[in-house]
Design a protein around this nucleic acid. Structure first.
Length: 464
RNA sequence: GUCCCCAUCGUCUAGAGGCCUAGGACACCUCCCUUUCACGGAGGCGACCGGGGUUCGAAUCCCCGUGGGGACGCCA
């Protein structure tokens, strides 16, 4: 059987981390089985869908590298097709017109809630044999409802959660077309999954409750029933549900915040899915391993610390060209404009080991290209009168030095021996003068990359 | 309220009845390395929600609690 999966976001906001994982899993499942991955934009909510959101989703997918084999399809462009099918259902009796007003329905819901029963449409316009229907009120445009079976159960074997059974008595006759004639979500999904021959529906588990209705409609249409896999939700770092108001951010924000897409992808892959003890793996490896059997049915809490760790790993592994481009881009907000160069490469090489974030990496190497703002506490602690004296001796030896790391290191040792001091007594003030702070990689290497002119100049600034 | 789902270290997870004295990873702690900060290396702390069954044997199967979550729209 041909595997065809789809990612079907509604363009009412950016692509967030939960959607990204759903997309990733759907994508990987298709890849794993040499199938097709389809992107479908569910934009039937005209009031809330925006072109900006469509673009944001496309951008997010692109940044993550989740390419699709078909699409993007837009449901709004398929209107006529939906309407045709609704007419057909009206004709064959699997759907009917309902003239209830919103007010009527609200009242019904409220009454049912008070009685402690599940709020649902009571079927007052549902045609039955020997049932006398009220006269359609004049001037009220009807909605179309699906005539859901009222007995028996709907069941499916969820590929993540196992068998789920729902009594049809729990379901009501959902609206498939609004009073203005536009079809609604549950209906469009069914038609599209059918038309697009989706074999596996992988989606968030907030759709579990829609599944029985969709299966019933699929059956009414004589369509094949796809397999379903419902992914549990991702909670925020604080264990709270992610929402627009709380914690949910665009995947693009991870770019802005200095994360490599490889890290985000790898992190997401391990959030709710596992392959034994494997933690770090490429997307190619992921696509070979990915299966639905090893998806956790319970909700997962997002952990930024672990993402940071993965990001550090991918920064270490990142090709220098890309790292230079990323760093130089992230240096610009600091008003530092540098092209790719051997100096930039050397600086990055020194700092990439200790960075877990691209923005941090840029900040770390910034002092190579612009005068650093000295940390006053470090200055006070390390730039002592004794240190000034040591540095005066040291800087004098720099002008004629063969400018190489080994030579610099040798001259440092020389000064340390002559002055009968411990190495840090030289290294620390030097570090502060050169970098502005007390933390850096080996200061001989830093000084080498900084260059003789700049090094001498920065030291002298403290000696005058 | 009704229906549905979920439950292993702080977090992500391994675990398909004996391989479990419950494994790995992040974080945390200690030590080593050391020129400061990191990287790295070696250790350590740390969990099967509770109660009943089933079984020779349960983290694993069943039931009941408890706790969490989701859904109940002319939203998707």
């Amino acid at each position: 059987m041909q595997v065809r999966t789809r990612f079907a976001p509604s363009p009412t906001g950016f692509l967030h981390i939960g959607g990204a994982r759903t997309a990733l899993f759907s994508w990987a499942y298709a890849k794993r089985h040499q199938g097709q991955f389809i992107l479908r934009v569910e934009d039937t909510d005209v009031a809330r869908s925006t072109p900006e959101a469509v673009q944001a989703i496309l951008d997010g997918m692109h940044w993550l590298g989740l390419s699709y084999d078909e699409g993007p399809y837009y449901q709004m462009q398929r209107m006529e097709h939906y309407k045709t099918i609704i007419q057909k259902m009206l004709a064959d009796g699997t759907a009917y017109l309902c003239y209830c007003s919103k007010e009527e329905l609200d009242a019904l819901r409220e009454q049912q809630m008070q009685q402690g029963i599940k709020p649902r449409y009571d079927g007052r316009w549902r045609p039955e044999v020997d049932k006398h229907l009220p006269m359609p009120p004049a001037g009220v445009p009807p909605v179309v409802r699906f005539k859901n079976p009222d007995t028996g159960v709907v069941a499916w074997d969820d590929l993540v959660k196992g068998r789920i059974e729902i009594a049809n008595a729990e379901l009501d006759d959902l609206i498939i077309a609004r009073a203005d004639g536009t079809p609604t979500y549950n209906f469009c999904v069914v038609v599209d999954d059918w038309d697009m021959q989706i074999s596996h529906v992988i989606r968030g588990d907030d759709h579990v409750n829609n599944t029985p209705r969709q299966i019933n409609m699929l059956k009414a249409l004589g369509a094949n029933i796809p397999q379903y896999a419902h992914l549990s939700m991702i909670l925020g770092d604080d264990g709270q549900k992610l929402s627009k108001r709380h914690g949910a951010v665009s995947v693009m924000q991870y770019d802005e915040e200095g994360y490599l897409p490889e890290a985000v992808l790898n992190y997401l892959a391990r959030l709710g899915w596992s392959h034994g003890d494997e933690e770090v793996f490429s997307m190619q490896q992921f696509c070979e391993w990915f299966d639905l059997d090893h998806i956790t049915p319970s909700a997962a809490q997002f952990n930024t610390e672990k993402l940071n760790w993965l990001n550090a790993h991918y920064i270490k592994a990142c090709p220098m060209d890309k790292l230079m481009a990323e760093t130089s881009k992230r240096l610009q907000p600091l008003n530092i404009y540098v092209e790719a160069s051997s100096q930039l490469a050397a600086a990055i090489q020194l700092y990439r080991e200790r960075a877990n974030n691209l923005n941090q990496l840029a900040q770390d190497v910034a002092f190579f290209f612009a005068q650093p703002q000295p940390n006053s506490a470090d200055v006070e602690k390390h730039i002592t009168p004794e240190a000034i004296s040591v540095m005066t001796t040291f800087v004098a030896k720099l002008s004629h030095l063969d400018w190489a790391v080994e030579a610099i290191h040798a001259v440092m040792n020389e000064v340390v021996t002559e002055q009968q001091i411990k190495f840090p007594k030289l290294a620390m003030p030097l570090r502060v003068m050169l970098t502005g702070g007390a933390q850096s990689p080996s200061i001989d290497q830093v000084m080498y990359i900084l260059g003789r002119e700049v090094a001498i100049q920065r030291i002298n600034a403290y000696l005058s």
